[in-house]
Simulated scan of single mutants.
Amino acid sequence: MAQGVKRIDKEKFYKGLDEVLTGTKSMSKAAKEIGISLPTANKYFNMVVKGEELPDGLFKED
């Protein structure tokens, strides 16, 4: 895992991304529910949309 990468819940992340993309939730509300900052949510959501790989170890393991 890259140093400084906060581990987040994968289900919450993709639910938030879906809600932002469908316009049912603002990015700031989604970021808050995921537990990351707005700039970080913007960065990671854009990475997914562009088909880029997210940082290793980003998601919590069950």
Rank of each mutant, 00 (worst) to 15 (best):
P39C: 01
E11A: 15
P55L: 10
G57V: 08
E19L: 14
E19Q: 15
K29C: 02
L58C: 07
F45V: 06
A2S: 11
S28V: 13
G4Y: 09
F59D: 01
E61L: 13
E33Q: 03
E33C: 00
R7L: 00
Y44I: 01
G35M: 07
A2R: 13
K32D: 12
I8F: 09
K10D: 06
K10I: 07
E52F: 10
D18M: 11
K25E: 13
T24R: 14
E53H: 08
L38C: 02
A31G: 04
D56Y: 08
E61Y: 08
A30T: 10
V20M: 10
G57I: 08
G57N: 15
G16R: 07
T22W: 10
G4E: 06
A31H: 02
V20R: 04
G57M: 09
K32C: 00
K32S: 10
N42V: 01
A41N: 02
R7I: 00
D56K: 11
D62E: 13
K12Y: 11
D18I: 05
K15D: 11
G35P: 12
K32R: 13
E33A: 01
L58M: 08
E52K: 15
Y44W: 13
Y44G: 03
K6I: 06
K25W: 08
F59Q: 03
K15N: 10
V48P: 04
V20C: 09
A2C: 07
A31D: 01
M47Q: 14
S26E: 14
M27E: 06
L21Q: 14
L21G: 06
G35A: 11
T24H: 09
K60H: 03
V48R: 05
G4T: 04
Y14M: 08
S26R: 14
V20G: 04
M1K: 13
P39E: 01
R7P: 00
P55G: 09
G57F: 10
G4V: 06
G35I: 07
R7G: 00
Q3D: 10
I34L: 09
G16Y: 06
E33T: 00
K12R: 15
K15E: 11
F13A: 04
E53A: 14
S37Q: 10
E33H: 00
G4K: 12
F45M: 07
G57S: 08
F45K: 04
S28R: 15
